[in-house]
Design a protein around this nucleic acid. Structure first.
Lengths: 338, 338
DNA sequence: ATGCGTTCTGTGAACGCTCCCAGAATCGGG
DNA sequence: CCCGATTCTGGGAGCGTTCACAGAACGCAT
């Protein structure tokens, strides 16, 4: 027998044309709202479209036009979507706002395995998108290579080292970390620890570097613990470990708000008062910050703006305009936790 | 002058063919790993591909094959992605796991405006995806109509009323809410309140209905407050309002874990002990639950499984197999908060 | 009548690929 | 040495559009 797949054949532009007693070209003009089609013809085509149930095949259209009207947004760290990191959501929404206004479709592609990585690279290279925003890339990312390879218009959110040429939009993690650590030291603390995370990413490295810079002579490697992800759980664990090592510490810089929230819980469970006994500061100014008691002093980073600007960089490239890298401003939000 | 867009022409299969001194057909066979191509030819083609820098144009391929190898995942409530609701992330990852294994590309489309809604509907109908998973749809959703219209294989996560015919995978919110409320009553409480949320969605309505059913004669409309979203903030606010109305209440069912976390903060700030003075239960068993002190008693819902099963339903339809709606099991996780 | 500009319509030629069929080359067995 | 089966290759047809061009129809001034 035949295949079991007997999907009903879709109506094409030709079906509409013969139903309306007109030609392909005229139907195409009506569908695309072009000039030079008579009122009679327009009505006849519209009636025929309804009658045969026509909807345009975008694949064929994209093939001849050599563009897709879609921009990919690649998320390399889907697990952070889940629990701790509200930044990705804001970036997504920011990018969507810009692209939607320019009538582009944002398509998000997540990479959760080696297999995904290859498939997404194919997707990007295959002409299915006109450009890409790449979030939380790692150094030597196969995606970055694929993008470079074919010259797909792209922009990074964040600034992975080792990939030149592709524009990015980022914040100065090191400077911001230095600023908030300095502010914490300004409250008179001298034994300040750090819970460092995600050292495989530029953001993690830079926040640690900024901390060291601010600490200067006070820096003590024994007061730094390292964890792979920016999570509440590692914040809790990290704080417990630090308290074991140095029960007399009087300040902590947590690499993100989620980490800070975990650390605060550990501190309070150990019977210490925040900020009286130990001052604590975070990073991101995410919804975590206002949720802590006391509320968290932290670095505000404009996550939605990161998404917006990255999208704008991609659109600029598509339009042949200059697309310079950009570093956005951060600020210290000083609240009750230190 | 000419257009400013002077994108470099991509190498096509024909370029490879002439570079290798072979035909289109042979190149295609090599690229797709088919049989009946000599070792010599294969080597020559592979060398030529490298030399001319060929990568396949998926748009052309999809046009002739009449399929895209992609499945859309539509998120109608992107803001919940941001802050409170970890479910969407789990659903996303679950769906991706299934689709990735079947070598389909998951593309997520978010709807954040009326404009988005139309564009996404076009995307789905235009042949750019072979099927769709639809998350958190509302009744009378234009997307649902578009999907039905063209018979795109699709599945809902959750069960919006008023849209028959399209399979779904859901949990029994009413039964689960009834079960956990009954359990809370079983600890000897008699003045139990509810913070109800998202009554414009089936999940919100059903959780409230389950609460009423469990309360029976004890149900008091004055002990229910209603809010639009499942958020920490509304939990805080709702609890404060309830304490104002009935300072002597001794139990609360919060419509989600995030809401419960907010409520717990309000309770503790009012000087009440949890669970001694007031028992509190939530819904979702998200990461919030373990983060509360005491840890939250809640309903465990298998969010990643929802995504997996929905993806499987879509694949089943594509393959012409039956795709029955499915209701997944939930269970009560009993911890310290009640 | 003739010419010219405008509006409208039809049609061939792509876009880059896969599918299919015809035919060439190769091989082993009678 | 021929024949049939098998392996391999080339190229026409077609997927559903858009685009460019040619020509028809029409009005209006010459």
């Amino acid at each position: 027998m035949e295949s079991t797949r007997t999907r009903i054949r879709r109506a094409t532009i030709n079906d509409v044309a013969s139903a309306a007693g007109l030609s392909r070209g005229t139907v195409s003009r009506v569908v695309n709202g072009e000039r030079y089609v008579s009122e009679d013809a327009k009505l006849a085509v519209e009636e025929a479209i309804l009658r045969v149930g026509y909807v345009r095949n975008s694949v064929a259209r994209n093939l001849v036009r050599q563009e897709s009207g879609a921009i990919g947004l690649i998320i390399h760290e889907p697990h952070s979507l889940l629990f701790e990191d509200p930044n990705i959501g804001s970036i997504l929404l920011g990018a969507n706002a810009v692209l939607s206004a320019a009538d582009y479709q944002l398509v998000s592609l997540i990479i959760d395995s080696e297999r995904d990585s290859r498939r997404v690279a194919d997707y990007l290279q295959g002409g299915l998108v006109d450009g890409a925003v790449i979030v939380s890339a790692r150094a030597s990312d196969p995606i970055a290579l694929a993008v470079k390879n074919l010259g797909v218009p792209a922009a990074f959110v964040g600034h992975p080292p080792g990939i030149p040429d592709i524009p990015y939009v980022a914040i100065d993690n090191a400077a911001a970390a230095e600023a908030i650590t300095a502010r914490l030291l300004g409250t008179g603390r001298t034994r300040v620890a750090m819970i460092a995370c995600a050292l495989d990413r530029d953001s993690g490295q830079d926040r640690l570097a900024g901390f060291k810079a601010a600490m200067g002579d006070l820096f003590d490697p024994g007061l730094v613990v390292e964890y792979p992800l920016y999570t509440y759980g590692f914040g809790l664990e990290g704080m417990q470990e630090l308290l074991r090592r140095r029960p007399d510490l009087d300040g902590v810089f947590a690499a993100s708000d989620a980490v800070a929230a975990g650390a605060m819980t550990a501190l309070q469970e150990s019977g210490r008062q925040v900020p009286e006994d130990v001052g604590i500061v975070g990073f991101d100014d995410s919804s975590w910050a206002l949720r802590c008691r006391p509320q968290l002093s932290t670095v505000r980073q404009p996550a939605d703006l990161l998404g917006k600007r990255a999208a704008e960089l991609v659109l600029a490239q598509i339009r042949g305009l200059p697309s310079p890298a950009e570093v956005l401003e951060t600020s210290v939000m000083w609240r009750g936790s230190a």
